[in-house]
Amino acid sequence: MKKDLLGIGDLTRDEIYLILDTAEAMREIGQRPIKKVPTLRGKTVVNLFYEPSTRTRTSFEIAEKRLSADTLNIAVATSSVLKGETLVDTAMNIEAMAPDVIVLRHASSGACHVLSRICRSRVINAGDGMHEHPTQALLDAFTIREHKKRIDGLKVVIVGDLLHSRVLRSNVLLLTELGADVWVCGPSTLVPIGVERLGVRVSTSVEEAVKDADVIMMLRIQHERMQGAFIPSVREYFNTFGMTPARVSRAKPDVIIMHPGPMNRGVEIASEVADGPYSVILEQVANGVAVRMAVLYLLAGGVED
């Protein structure tokens, strides 16, 4: 593996499988009475989060603690960023205290790449703007593989706000690399120009897209990133694209429903679907810890170069 995990594009197919296989072993640690192994003892991991996050930050922190790393969290709301410090200056100051890994969440696409160039520490991208969120895609693939025993040849449909989604890009790169037949679906105002060049099929009809799907992955409507009128109203969006039991019934009988969270119930997904029998949304959260442990071990488990 490379020094940093900035995006799925950095990984070879073999490395993706190595992470997923290692995560299988890591998951067992979470089922023990003592959920901790000494692997990263003496290593320091800084979680630097410039955007609000519950799931991802908690998941990384639990993963780090289960591997015995020393962790600290910098939430921007209580940091010197509010006094005007730039990302680079903040990073250089953290770097001066010699952490082994920096986990970065930032609203700007490419922020991790900037850090990667200036830091000796290993950098893990925990979501950068509208670009990538690699550990989310890895945990999604892990969850799909657990249910379907394969990824190759599956019809995976990703529905929602495609334009603002880093989860979309990471998932498309990963799933197409592993041979899935990926469809993306959303209102034309939220379909990124040129998305078909990533090797996906584009549809603006949910009914068409979900037909015979093995996996339906919902994306959140990201109001906070929308500057302009992309959808007429939340109600109309739900009527046209919301995942309802009727739409789910067009997919394969053993379809699984995924969502990276946080969910907007009644906007992109109906509560009956989110809490229904096909939903693996909470499994995704549980698997996130195992996948992040695998990434941390594979990046930081050895000596520095």
Binding site: T22, A25, M26, G42, Y297, L298, G301, V303
Partner: peptide, 12 residues
């Protein structure tokens, strides 16, 4: 684990 020259980590 922390002593080997850089290389692939042992498979878990």
């Amino acid at each position: 684990l922390m002593r080997h020259a850089v290389g692939p980590q042992p498979l878990v």
